[in-house]
Simulated scan of single mutants.
Amino acid sequence: MRQIFFDTETTGLRAEAGDRIIEIGCVEMVNRQLTGNNLHLYLNPERDIDEEAVRIHGLTVEFLADKPKFAEVVDQIVEFLSGAELVIHNAAFDIGFMNAELKRLGRPLVTDFVGGVRDTLLMARDMFPGKANSLDALCKRLEVDNSNRTFHGALLDSELLAEVYIRLTRGQDALLMDDHGSASGQEGGDTRVAQVDFSRFVLPVLQATPEELEAHEKVLAELDKASGGKRVWQTAEPRGEGAPAA
Rank of each mutant, 00 (worst) to 15 (best):
I4H: 10
T8Y: 00
E9S: 05
L13P: 03
R14A: 04
R14C: 09
R14G: 07
A15K: 04
D19L: 03
E28R: 14
V30G: 00
R32V: 12
P45E: 00
R47D: 01
D50I: 01
D50A: 09
V54W: 04
L59V: 14
F63S: 03
L64Q: 07
D66T: 15
V73Y: 05
V74E: 12
I77H: 11
E79F: 12
F80V: 06
E85K: 12
A91K: 15
F97Q: 06
M98A: 01
A100F: 03
E101M: 01
E101V: 04
R104A: 01
L105C: 00
G106L: 05
R107N: 05
P108I: 07
P108S: 05
L109F: 05
D112L: 01
F113Y: 13
M127W: 11
G130T: 08
D136S: 11
A137H: 05
L138I: 11
K140I: 04
V144G: 14
N148E: 13
N148S: 09
H152S: 03
L155I: 10
L156C: 03
D157G: 01
D157K: 06
L160N: 08
L161Y: 03
A162C: 13
E163Q: 15
R167Y: 09
L168I: 01
L175D: 12
L175H: 12
L175Y: 15
L176R: 15
M177Y: 10
M177D: 07
G188A: 13
G189V: 08
R192L: 10
R200V: 13
F201H: 06
F201Q: 09
L203F: 08
L203N: 08
A208C: 14
E212I: 13
L213E: 10
A226Y: 04
A226G: 06
G228H: 09
G229M: 10
G229Y: 11
K230T: 08
W233V: 00
W233I: 00
A236S: 04
E237H: 08
P238D: 11
R239Q: 04
R239G: 02
G240I: 01
G242Y: 05
P244C: 00
A245T: 00
A245Q: 00
A246S: 00
